[in-house]
Design a protein around this nucleic acid. Structure first.
Lengths: 138, 138
DNA sequence: CTCGTTGTAACCATATTAGTTCTAACCAAA
DNA sequence: TTTGGTTAGAACTAATATGGTTACAACGAG
């Protein structure tokens, strides 16, 4: 990958709108703010529903948060949009040659460090709530 | 992206081999340990050269480190293989609508947090040297 | 000169991403 | 009960990244 999908930043955008404008937050309105297609918004909203973060009103329109903004962290959103395959950020090359000293041991040696690095990032995301983020500009 | 390219883990693998077997480390030999095509190895080796981490002997074969293993960190290798576009791990959706309160402010609000999360990960990678990694299995 | 090696261009299959069009299902209000 | 705005989602597309492959030129020690 070159970059973590913008699904993540769009999801944060969507949740911010739902938090601030629960009544007006139709797919069309959100798409206008994000500046993309309503179907893109719906796809991400499906993931947010699946993660139990929001409830959507079919037919009538609009959505609402299922948790307080102070209870939703950036990590919750990051996980909801499934930007990292199997939750693993780093892709380790498959099947190194076990007949070689390095090939036989590099995976175990490196795996722990990659996990630690990923964890450091995720813990930083977990420190920020949607409430704190919104407070920056309301 | 779904995952950070295996170029990173392969690069660590390559450097470990060069550190341990400087004489035998031909593209063919490394490819055998990584279990891939020699051209893949050469492409990554080109990046490692570009980053000033190694020197390669054209024609004769083999490579050597330009720094002590204790002076090469996982972050150096991560940066060398250019797995994150422009060094930015997170991709923010372009051109949100500035006529909307959220669209106008979400980028500034979120950008700092994403950078902080990325930095947390990179700092963790910077704590591990190639020497420490190799020491785990020699 | 020769042989093994490095360097690199060109090409390929697959997957992801972001986006589009289209249609069905939903539900409140007229 | 029909209408209109909405949600739900299938199907498709273009662009790009990835990992791999083949082929060939350039290099350099023996």
């Amino acid at each position: 990958m070159k970059q973590i999908s913008s699904r993540f930043s769009v999801a944060v955008h969507i949740l911010s709108i739902i938090a601030l404008f629960p009544n007006e937050s139709t797919g069309e309105f959100i798409a206008g703010s994000v500046n993309t297609n309503p179907v893109i918004i719906r796809k991400i909203i499906r993931l947010l529903k699946k993660a139990g973060l929001i409830a959507v009103r079919p037919g009538v329109g609009g959505a609402s948060l299922l948790k307080d903004t102070g209870e939703i962290t950036l990590l919750d959103i990051y996980r909801a949009v499934e930007v990292a395959d199997q939750g693993e950020l780093f892709h380790f090359h498959e099947e190194p040659n076990h007949a070689c000293l390095v090939g036989n041991n590099i995976e175990n040696a490196l795996r722990d460090e990659l996990r630690a690095a990923q964890l450091a990032m995720e813990q930083r995301l977990a420190q920020v709530t949607l409430q704190q983020l919104i407070a920056k500009f309301v």
